[in-house]
């Protein structure tokens, strides 16, 4: 029944990997450098390693992506969480992105049922921390950073 697709992103899908319709896609970020592990944490505002880990995950305002190698921080990237604006399935959209960017660890306060299921599929390690924990402190406490 479909003769042509016509998906050139003309107003109804925002470019490569764009979400259908008017939803903004999650940002593209390069894969983790070799030899490093990638850690993701939802945060309430963007303040580098001083960002507080958010009580929300799927609809957290920002997502912190930290690449760690040999106990040292290699990269810190804090992006706006486009998934927060998903009408439904925000946790799934975020979970998909976490898989796509090659993260192997998630630090959060709690996980909604959907994102929990998605992360389990690839065995992403989940570490739960008390609300208000600062990102840098969590990384140290969990032993990712010396």
């Amino acid at each position: 029944m479909v003769t042509s697709m016509g998906w050139s992103g003309r107003g109804y899908s925002r470019g490569r990997g764009g979400m259908w319709g008017y939803q903004a896609p999650m940002p593209q970020i390069p894969p983790p450098p070799s030899g490093s592990i990638r850690i993701v944490a939802p945060v309430d505002f963007s303040n580098g390693l001083n960002s507080p880990i958010s009580m929300r995950t799927g609809r957290a305002p920002y997502i912190a992506v930290v690449d760690v190698s040999g106990g040292k921080i290699v990269n810190v990237n804090i992006v706006q969480n486009a998934a927060a604006m998903a009408p439904r399935g925000a946790g799934v959209q975020l979970g998909q992105w976490i898989l796509n960017i090659g993260a192997s660890i998630v630090i959060a306060v709690s996980l909604g049922p959907n994102i929990d299921m998605v992360l389990r599929q690839v065995g992403v390690r989940v570490e739960l921390v008390p609300p208000g924990t600062i990102l840098g402190d969590a990384l140290a406490k969990l032993g990712f950073v010396k």
């Binding site: 003769t3 107003g11 319709g21």
Partner: peptide, 19 residues
């Protein structure tokens, strides 16, 4: 519901999504 299934099957892309 704005899912756009119709837009996907339109052979001439005459259907689009709007807010």
């Amino acid at each position: 519901e704005g899912f756009g299934t119709c837009a996907l099957v339109c052979p001439v892309q005459a259907i689009y999504l709007k807010p």
